[in-house]
């Protein structure tokens, strides 16, 4: 298991942002994490990443205890979001060097890892371009590349494809599949319900709880609908058949 949590809870005052959620994610699995705004997705992810202390509950991420070994977790996970702050006035390569440095990699390691990653992601030609001049779809790949430099076991992708054109979105998902084939666990949030269909398994959160967790096909059968969009709307509105 890559991620395993039981009864994970986060209270902010009287408000339970995350309310006793339990789930596990296998190595190499693409796990989709859906929910309305404010349902508790981000709070959950922040606890899994070791950025926020749980109020209650236990669990492990990459084999480390989320309550005690959170600094070790940070070295074994990658994180990328739509708001990921690549520096626009650095070149693609300078951004990579910068993030490699933050992860404590030596220059030689950065060189080796990035050569590998640039080949997979197809960034070689853009290496010396200023990040601000790189098209959106490629920036997203660059951000993904930066989050993979330290060879993490688990990658958290927080709405990685928002606002990206349909072709770039598909190219990005091809990369996600490649990562999964390499044995990386991918934990992804998205508001594009057609992308939810690409996930191996999905959970849907509402008001701090996980209200559904299964593969896309079973969820569609359960709600007797054709698309994940309809599953999402029906489940969040409490219309289970």
């Amino acid at each position: 298991m890559s991620v395993e949590v039981q009864g994970l809870t986060k209270n902010f005052g009287d408000f339970a942002a995350v309310d006793h959620v339990s789930f596990s994610v296998e190595k190499g699995e693409i796990f989709g994490f859906l929910g309305a705004n404010g349902a508790g997705k981000t709070t959950t992810i922040r606890m899994l990443c070791g950025l926020l202390e749980p109020s209650e509950g236990t669990g492990t991420v990459a084999g480390f205890d989320i309550n005690r070994q959170y600094s070790k977790i940070k070295h074994r996970i990658g994180y990328m979001s739509q708001k990921f702050s690549l520096y626009n006035d650095l070149t693609a390569w300078e951004n990579i060097e910068f993030y490699g440095g933050i992860y404590g990699l030596k220059d030689k390691e950065i060189q080796e890892r990035s050569r590998e990653l640039f080949a997979i992601i197809g960034l070689e030609e853009l290496k010396n371009k200023l990040t601000s001049s790189i098209p959106m779809g490629w920036k997203q790949r660059l951000a993904l590349c930066a989050s993979l430099l330290h060879d993490p076991e688990i990658i958290f992708l927080d709405e990685p494809t928002s606002g990206v054109d349909p072709l770039s979105r598909r190219n990005f998902w091809k990369l996600i599949y490649q990562l999964s084939d390499m044995g990386k666990t991918v934990f992804v949030t998205t508001h594009y319900m057609d992308e939810a269909e690409y996930c191996h398994r999905l959970s849907i959160m509402k008001q701090g709880r996980i209200i559904e967790m299964d593969n896309p096909r079973s969820l569609k059968e359960k709600y007797q609908v054709k698309t994940m969009q309809d599953v999402f709307l029906a489940s969040v509105r409490g219309e289970a058949k």
């Binding site: 309305a36 705004n37 606002g163 319900m193 709307l233």
Partner: peptide
């Protein structure tokens, strides 16, 4: 201009 950007499917509807 993109009033539903980053908004979940229920709120979008």
């Amino acid at each position: 201009d993109e009033p539903t950007f980053g908004v979940d499917p229920v709120s979008r509807s």
